[in-house]
Design a protein around this nucleic acid. Structure first.
Lengths: 186, 186
DNA sequence: GAAACCATGTAAGTTGTTACATGATTGG
DNA sequence: CCAATCATGTAACAACTTACATGGTTTC
């Protein structure tokens, strides 16, 4: 699902400005989607040209006019149609794991720093999701936030329990990782 | 880290053809990266032009020549430098979660099908990683595979335990505290 | 007084995918 | 006999990011 379609979807919930939509991407959706103004504003403009949105300009003192977008019946139909498509696989892109893949080219200290930073950032992300969840109105938003929390917590636990596998450079490390994978078979 | 850099990194391990590299992306890296031939082949060509790789053509009967790439000392330096950059946040893009976000627009049956398909696919992905792991030689590869397994298992558990939140037709209990949004929908 | 927030938008650039082009070989 | 595997590559396209452009307001 592209940004354009997601914007349309968010507008099935309530009217919003481009700025509002950006905030939703940064909060509720931050775990599984990202979007910059450079993709949101053009998407809204084009959806409006196509008759899927309407736009009301609300003048403001000493600021650009606020453009409030609302979905049209046609827009609703188009979105419902997009929603019926069966979703493909998730796309995960992790610079962290790509770096870890080449841990043998880094010093133990660099590896330790890498993982420490990751732990901090993951905890930070957990806190962000928890904060964002307080504004959720739909049960589906809670479900999604919970999904993100479950994944991040699993990552934290794995990192804490298994970091020694890449931090220590001995053979025992390999055996430990292997047994972890074997245990997962159950 | 872009595909180009990852190709360079994979070639620090051992020589390979573009085809070989594609297989690595489909197996060991499948959980957290994707790459098509359309990005791999041009990347290898360009890296070779820049002197970071060498290429040996090995003629084959009734097939295109096999092009075997090897990393140069310069290539190794460039990669090590890229590896020292602190990795940014993961990028996750999930059509599934984007769809779930609008679960209230789908019928209970559609939601059930959506989740059933997700469970099947997640189990399938788990199996794929387990299979791919059998070829791992480095402890870091085991670590990464374990990471993927840990995340996927957390997803499975969450889905199985929490699917009722979005499936239940009687959402009143879940929503009661916070649902004042009906007015926003027309 | 600096940072963050509010509010919009565009243009250039990056990065990647999909589809096409070619074509033999092997396994179920 | 059809699908998958082996093996390379290009061109058109899609989608998104970054940086630029503008500038007042609120909060620490």
């Amino acid at each position: 699902m592209d940004i354009r379609t997601l914007c349309l979807g968010l507008l099935t919930r309530q009217e919003a400005t481009g700025y509002d939509i950006k905030k939703v991407f940064e909060a509720e959706l931050s775990y599984f989607y990202e979007a910059s103004f450079g993709s949101i504003y053009p998407a809204l403009t084009k959806l409006t040209e196509e008759g899927l949105l309407t736009c009301t300009e609300q003048p403001q003192d000493k600021r650009p006019d606020k453009k409030i977008y609302r979905i049209t019946p046609a827009g609703r139909l188009v979105f419902l149609d997009a929603l019926k498509q069966q979703p493909g696989r998730d796309h995960v892109r992790s610079d962290f794991l790509a770096t870890v893949l080449f841990a043998d080219l880094l010093s133990p200290r660099q590896i330790a720093e890498l993982i420490d930073a990751r732990l901090i950032d993951t905890r930070c992300q957990l806190a962000e999701i928890k904060t964002a969840t307080q504004n959720c109105r739909h049960s589906s938003e809670h479900f999604i936030a919970g999904y993100g929390l479950a994944v991040l917590q699993a990552e934290l636990a794995y990192l804490e329990e298994q970091r020694h596998v890449i931090e220590g450079e001995n053979l025992a490390a390999v055996n430990s990782a292997t047994s972890q994978i074997a245990a997962a078979d159950d």
